[in-house]
Design a protein around this nucleic acid. Structure first.
Lengths: 192, 192
DNA sequence: GCCTTTGCCTAAAGCCTTTAGGAAAATTAC
DNA sequence: GTAATTTTCCTAAAGGCTTTAGGCAAAGGC
């Protein structure tokens, strides 16, 4: 019967590749079975259901992203760290669009807590240490960073920048400059 | 036969309500037909297909959002304008989660050009006029604004802030303070 | 009252999901 | 080396959602 030797890991890997090729929302149990040269029912012995498959891809993506970010962060601090980290996100989104979309999936609290998502916020906090923000402001700053990265890449990928002139990379650079400047000069609470 | 008197407009309106109730990706032609007490095939005389329906909801949402934003902007400038505008976005997302998700849909260039999306960027530019940025930087600033708003609300809605302490509204306020400060003190290109 | 438009329906084909139950290959155990 | 077990895969089948084709009936204009 010449079996392909599939298992959960291989399947999710293949699912991630499929996502990058055709888009995350086109990742269906049927399409994946077709791609693996196997009947649909087969996949259900490796994966609980469609949602489980998608969550698997999301966790894979979050892990890869955290690994790359950790690598990029090694030995860097300040603006250099900020830029390196941000570029990992953006580059990953361009290089693996389907996986990146998967990483945006809403996960239930349990799953999220066990995901590489926690590593991500830890790294953002590490970057912020180089900017010496007062503690109560750190969380706000982490959220700002996440918002800017997520927001910019999301808009860029979604074609939100396709109608105005400057190419995204130029804006990206200026946005990172701006965020760096902001972190170095974080406004105090009593500002009018 | 006691007909309900449906037409495209009413259908898209109902679709928007359905989206807010069960989530935008649960908006299916079948579900909408069920909700309207009509057979599935009926909807296909009002709407080209599933995608067309979703695009319709997206355009409705973009229009509503632009209207509300324009209202909020009237008679305001500077930080007041920035805050009012930003709050319209965030409030809308909370009040109409399904529509907000619809508004994030990727539209093909044609459709996007004819949508209220252009009003949105015009309003952002109007806000920036109060900050007197040099022209080449304006577009970058518009993109930063969009990124922050989109990013923050997206993360908040996606549960990305559920695991750390301060409630989102507090961070939102601080983030808006920070963005205001940044716009008032936009870094020059030659900064190291 | 007739006619056109508009709203709606039945029927049917195609694809995706998911479960149930069973065969064959690969692995392990004696 | 063979027997038992586990793993991988399959056929079959039921239920949903999408979309097209063709036709009936209500509403409204003339």
């Amino acid at each position: 019967m010449a079996r392909a030797g599939l298992n959960r890991g291989r399947l999710i890997q293949a699912g991630a590749e499929l996502a990058d090729e055709v888009g995350f929302d086109q990742v269906t149990v049927s399409a994946l079975a077709r791609r693996c040269g196997v009947t649909v029912a087969t996949l259900y012995s490796h994966v609980r259901n469609s949602h489980d498959l998608r969550v698997g891809i999301a966790l894979l993506a979050l892990g890869e992203l955290a690994d790359e970010a950790a690598d990029a962060l090694a030995g860097r601090a300040g603006k250099e760290a900020l830029t390196a980290f941000a570029n990992v996100y953006r580059d990953y989104a361009h290089r693996r669009p389907g996986r990146w979309a998967a990483a945006q999936m809403r996960l239930d609290p349990q799953t999220a807590a066990g995901s590489a998502g926690v590593r991500h916020s830890a790294m953002m906090r590490a970057i912020l240490r180089g900017y010496h923000l007062p503690e109560p402001e750190q969380t706000h700053a982490v959220r700002l960073l996440g918002s800017v990265f997520q927001g910019f890449v999301g808009l860029e990928m979604g074609g939100g920048f396709d109608h105005s002139a400057p190419a995204p990379p130029e804006s990206w650079e200026r946005v990172l400059d701006a965020v760096d400047a902001l972190l170095r000069n974080w406004p105090t609470t009593d500002a009018t």
